[in-house]
Simulated assay, not measured.
Amino acid sequence: MDVDAFVLAHSPAWDRLEQLVKRRRTLTGVEVDELVDLYQRVSTHLSVARSATGDAVLIGRLSGLVARARAAVTGAHAPLGQEFVRLWTVSFPVVAYECRRWWLASALSFLVVAVVIGFWVAGSPEVRATLGTPAELEQLINHDFESYYSENPAGSFALRVWVNNAWVAAQCIGFAILLGLPIPWVLFQNAANVGVSGGLMFGAGKGDLFLGLLTPHGLLELTAVFLAAAAGMRLGWSVIAPGNRPRGQVLAERGRAVISVAGGLVVVLLISGLIEALVTPSPLPTYARIAIGVTAEVAFLAYVVHFGRRAARAGETGDIADAPDVVPTT
């Protein structure tokens, strides 16, 4: 098909539809009928363009125009309840599932850094000396580390933890606009903090206390941070290597999908914060507290695998329904 001839023949109809969509709130009855007619015709043009040409610019223009015209014609939006269900059964889990390689790489890198720094601190008196005076380190090891989880009321402590963790996750996602390059540094800083704390506690023979306090909430908390980092780096990488699709289309699709990750992580981090405030400092035996943390982690991973894999097999990407650049036509 001759694309230039196709555009020349139909562009007046496209321009007229564009005008009517812009004036949709002030249309006369005749113009409303014209809008519906043009919407149907341009939908057909889009179908033809997709099947007979590979012109991404033309397809993108018509996709956006058809999507806007559909909104003007139907004025319909999915019910709020339906959007909520879609977020938790499709959008959030499928993006998390598709990010699994980035997610795993983030977790392994974090663990390696934390363990290496932990062994370094635990085995080197010189390194520990640079972290504080003997009195300061003794106060941290014997009092501050444990009292941190119980010195404030549970409600205010949970809120503070939630806000702090949400900020770390937001940084990871937000840095996607810089191609995700700062995200490894954010992860390194947090891994270093965990490694230093672990090194001091293990070096003082209190490794069991360290793990007993960190594990209940830390598993889910760190998993959420790793997911945020994975989503941000994957989005940044899509700019560098978009595959066989237009870079703008891939970036728009994954960018919108990342919004669902941000929304889902708000709830995941809230649960983690509640565990940290209510379970970690509780008088429950250490094994019981750890069991609660492990159960929450396993439940979250099972949820992502179940719903994410099912949505991925159905061709879902986590993008919003009827996205302008991928809107289906008949």
Rank of each mutant, 00 (worst) to 15 (best):
F307Q: 05
D322N: 15
W185C: 07
S51W: 05
G195T: 07
R101P: 01
F202M: 03
T28R: 12
A13V: 12
M201A: 02
A323S: 14
A9D: 15
T44S: 12
A321L: 13
A311F: 02
V268M: 08
L46R: 10
V32S: 03
V21F: 02
G118Q: 07
T53R: 06
L80H: 07
Q40V: 08
D15M: 13
I275A: 06
A129H: 07
L178Q: 11
L235R: 13
K206D: 12
A321W: 13
I259M: 11
I290Y: 07
G248F: 09
E297T: 10
W120V: 04
L227D: 14
R23D: 15
A76R: 12
A105S: 13
F210T: 07
L211R: 08
I275S: 00
G236V: 10
P93K: 14
A170W: 13
R70E: 15
R289E: 04
S124H: 08
G318R: 08
I259G: 15
S156D: 12
A9C: 09
L227H: 09
E151C: 04
V30W: 01
A299M: 09
G54M: 12
E31G: 01
S43H: 07
R70G: 14
H306L: 08
R100G: 14
H306M: 02
R68I: 03
L8S: 15
S272I: 00
L178F: 15
A9S: 14
L274Q: 04
D33G: 10
A288H: 00
W103Y: 14
D322S: 14
V7G: 06
Y148W: 06
S47M: 13
S197K: 07
L111I: 02
T89E: 11
D33A: 08
M201P: 10
V48G: 05
I275L: 02
M233A: 11
G60R: 05
A262R: 01
Q139H: 11
S147I: 03
S150V: 01
R101A: 10
Y287E: 02
D208A: 06
G203P: 07
T26Y: 09
P125R: 05
A321P: 07
V261F: 03
T130G: 12
E151F: 04
L20H: 05
Q139Y: 06
I292T: 02
G248P: 08
L179Y: 15
A191T: 02
R41F: 11
Y39I: 01
A69M: 03
V239I: 15
V121Y: 04
N190F: 00
A5I: 11
W88V: 15
G155V: 12
G75K: 08
K206L: 15
